[in-house]
């Protein structure tokens, strides 16, 4: 299989793993959270309570419109809940000033269905961009980026442009970018949605590799095959309510 990263022997020891403010607290804590978008009667999330511990791998499943994306957006404080409280990385988001939101987001990596790479930058530059814009020194960037590019399995392709890569490879670049700052949490919103099943397995291996470094992974997905094969915790949402929360679950058990 692949080598575990995060061990003392690996080159990653230069980057200390993210620390919790309080070690025992869950990394993500939703307490009775309700979110209603303006001009809509039905809540996107309806009194949702869920805890995700450090180092967990959680699948968020459910039909479209069940509130998966809202759940992820709430974690990033892109949306505010109408009720309940959310703690992320030990911080109460309702008491986190806008000024400090960027610092919260530095501890959260994000991967999307549509990759969101910069088309005029090559692989290396796309990954480096994430560090440049948070003001990391050049020396640090030169050291860390190649390591992460290798971790996602793109060694030797650092100077390719996104349009020269396959969908799977582009998603790997996006994952490298999300992970390069060693976030505490990685949020993945249907990362395999645009990718064929064979390539998806590679993507899942990278996510698993990232998870094994101690990063909490929350992945929203429709892909039953992947959920079934990974045997991780599954949280199922339906109409904004949690209808199933199962460790080592499968996609379709409720049906």
């Amino acid at each position: 299989m692949f080598r575990l990263v995060g061990d003392e022997e690996t080159p990653f020891v230069t980057v200390p793993p993210p620390r919790l403010a309080c070690r025992d607290a869950p990394v993500i804590h939703f307490d009775n959270v309700t979110k209603v978008y303006p001009n809509q009667n039905r809540p996107a999330l309806d009194h949702v309570s869920v805890d995700v511990d450090k180092g967990e791998f959680v699948f968020l499943v459910g039909p479209s419109g069940s509130g998966k994306s809202t759940f992820l957006r709430l974690i990033l404080k892109e949306e505010r809940p109408n009720g309940g409280s959310i703690h992320v990385a030990g911080k109460d988001l309702s008491r986190l000033s806008n000024f400090k939101v960027p610092h919260l987001r530095r501890r959260i990596g994000c991967v999307f269905q549509d990759f969101r790479l910069l088309p005029n930058k090559n692989v290396y530059e796309n990954v480096a961009f994430a560090l440049e814009v948070i003001g990391k020194p050049r020396r640090f960037i030169r050291k860390v980026v190649p390591e992460v590019v290798e971790l996602v399995g793109l060694e030797g392709k650092a100077h390719r442009m996104p349009h020269e890569l396959s969908g799977g490879e582009q998603q790997r670049v996006a994952m490298a970018r999300a992970f390069v700052n060693r976030p505490m949490i990685l949020l993945a919103d249907e990362p395999t949605g645009n990718i064929d099943p064979a390539t998806s397995i590679g993507i899942m291996k990278v996510l698993d590799r990232i998870n094994r470094t101690g990063t909490t992974v929350v992945m929203a997905t429709h892909d039953a095959a992947i959920v079934d094969s990974m045997r991780k915790r599954v949280v199922e949402l339906e109409d904004g309510k949690i209808v199933r929360d199962q460790s080592r679950g499968v996609y379709g058990q409720a049906y």
């Binding site: 610092h103 501890r107 700052n181």
Partner: peptide
């Protein structure tokens, strides 16, 4: 908007954006 979207996502400060 692409760049700024990514900058927001990875936690660039408002000033920087």
């Amino acid at each position: 908007r692409r760049e700024t979207g990514i900058m927001r996502l990875v936690g660039a400060s408002n000033l920087y954006i």
